[in-house]
Computed example of a mutant assay.
Amino acid sequence: MTAEYWEMKFSRTPIVRTVDVSHNSITLAWSAPVMDRTITAYQFMVRKGDPSGPQVPIDVLADTNSFPPYRHVIASLTPKTVYYIQVRGVDSDGDASNWSRQQVYKTL
């Protein structure tokens, strides 16, 4: 998919979209941020029930060889619970992009 599909400009911040929400998982798709080096991983920060909770990346996607839109399932979530999720890319030198805008989801 192209930048026109996402209706955005390339930036250092991933643009995140929801693909699916179930009782115990959330599937995300995002555009890759523009970085000086190849992105080798994506980190996902998930806060359960509190938008200002601990800022610790809890999930990492190391396989970035697929074509956009990139997708990932965040699983083992609690039903009927609010989650705040952000995504960022990490390059081969360990430099990270900006975190995406925080998205709010509620599992079914």
Rank of each mutant, 00 (worst) to 15 (best):
R37Q: 14
R88W: 04
T78G: 04
W30A: 05
S97R: 03
S100T: 03
Q43T: 05
M35L: 14
R47V: 06
P57L: 14
S97K: 04
V60W: 14
V90P: 01
V90M: 07
P69M: 08
T64I: 15
S92R: 05
S100F: 01
V34E: 13
T40D: 05
T40R: 08
P54W: 06
M1D: 03
G49A: 06
R71S: 06
V34P: 11
Q86F: 02
D20G: 01
V104K: 09
D95G: 01
V21E: 09
S25H: 11
V56L: 12
N98W: 07
P51G: 07
I26E: 07
D59F: 12
R12E: 14
S11H: 12
P57V: 12
V87K: 10
I85V: 15
Y42W: 15
V82L: 11
V34R: 13
S92V: 14
L108S: 01
V21T: 13
W99L: 11
P79M: 02
S25E: 09
V73S: 07
S22E: 10
N98V: 15
P68K: 03
V87D: 09
W30Q: 03
I85G: 09
V46M: 10
G49H: 03
V19W: 00
P68Q: 10
K9P: 05
A32M: 08
W6C: 02
P14G: 13
V60A: 11
